[in-house]
Every structure is written in C-alpha cells, then in structure tokens.
Amino acid sequence: MSESLRFTFDVDGGDFTSAGHASVQVKKNLRQLGLSPEVIRRVSIAMYEGEINMVIHAGGGHAEVLVHEDCVEIILDDKGPGIADIEQAMQEGFSTAPDQIRSLGFGAGMGLPNMKRYTDSMEIFSTVGVGTKIVMKVNY
C-alpha cells in the first residue's frame, strides 16, 4: 500500500478575517489530485467549520489532511480551553461564541453539527484546560 499524502497547516488564531486559508488551500490541493467534487466539497466545508472553531475558541491550532486510498482524513488539534460537555456542544444552536463573532456570520451553534453532517465519521477528544482533537473522515 502506498503511503498516504499529507497536508499540514498551522491555523493562525489571531485574525478571524483570515480564517479559512487552510481550507481554501486544501480544496485546491484535492482538486489537483482529481477527487470528486462531492468529496472535495464535504472535506472543505467540514475543515472550514473546524478552522473557524479553532480561531474563535482556541486561539488557533494545527490541521492535518491525509489522503488515504479509501477516504480523506482531517485531524484538527488545538490547545484551547477544551469542550466541557461534548453532547451539548453537538446540539444545533448551542454556542459559547462571543456576540462579536455572531455579527461576522458565525457562532450560531452550527459548526460541530455541520462538521458531523458532511463527514462519514467524526470523533472528538477533549480535555478541559488542555485542548481538543477532532478526527473526521470522508469516504470516497
């Protein structure tokens, strides 16, 4: 089996307006690899929401995209405050984002549900005060 292709990105937590850089780049890279538009769209939307979350809540983080033989895997890692109640955070409409973020079009409690909606599997590992790691897969 050939080794999976890997793209890595540092997500800058300082500036909300620049959030999404990594996702736009991933979309370009996957297009060059010739993956189907449907898979590319699902991967980039899930990653985009994750990237926005890392900027809003965790002051940035690290993103890794692995192109396997049967799926694309997205790993998002941050050293933010962690998620106290994952079940609650997964509910549509639940949000702890500040009002200022809402005025920018996000923070409506749709990020995590959207990430789940567009991926075939999603696992959240989070420890309060330590950080959060999210692993998502989109199958071909």
């Binding site: 909300f16 307006t17 620049s18 959030a19 999404g20 996702s23 736009v24 979309k27 538009p37 769209r41 980039s44 939307i45 985009y48 926005i52 920018l104 079009g105 996000f106």
Partner: peptide
C-alpha cells in the same frame, strides 16, 4: 448583507 472575507470563503467552499 454581510460584508467580510468569510462570505466569499463560504461561497468558495459551497462551489
């Protein structure tokens, strides 16, 4: 009616 770069990135993501 929202004007910031995330509007365009959202449109890009959604094709």
């Amino acid at each position: 009616g929202l004007v910031n770069p995330q509007v365009i990135r959202t449109a890009v993501m959604m094709d």
